[in-house]
């Protein structure tokens, strides 16, 4: 699976941002705003809705 653009959401401060996600090669995530690592990768359906 090729890397693709996904939406991430920080569960600490609520900040949302777009980033690349590579299924094979997961990388560490941290919120660009509050440095928290609780970064949820939003499912595609959810992104489409909002």
């Amino acid at each position: 699976m090729a890397p693709k653009q996904v939406r991430f959401k920080c569960l600490m401060c609520g900040h949302e941002y777009d980033g690349m996600y590579d299924h094979e090669n997961v990388t560490e995530r941290s919120c660009p705003k509050c440095r928290s690592n609780s970064i949820r990768r939003l499912p595609d359906a959810k992104v489409a809705k909002s």
Partner: peptide
């Protein structure tokens, strides 16, 4: 609520 589960390195 999803933020009830947190992850930190």
């Amino acid at each position: 609520r999803v933020d009830r589960l947190q992850l930190e390195w």
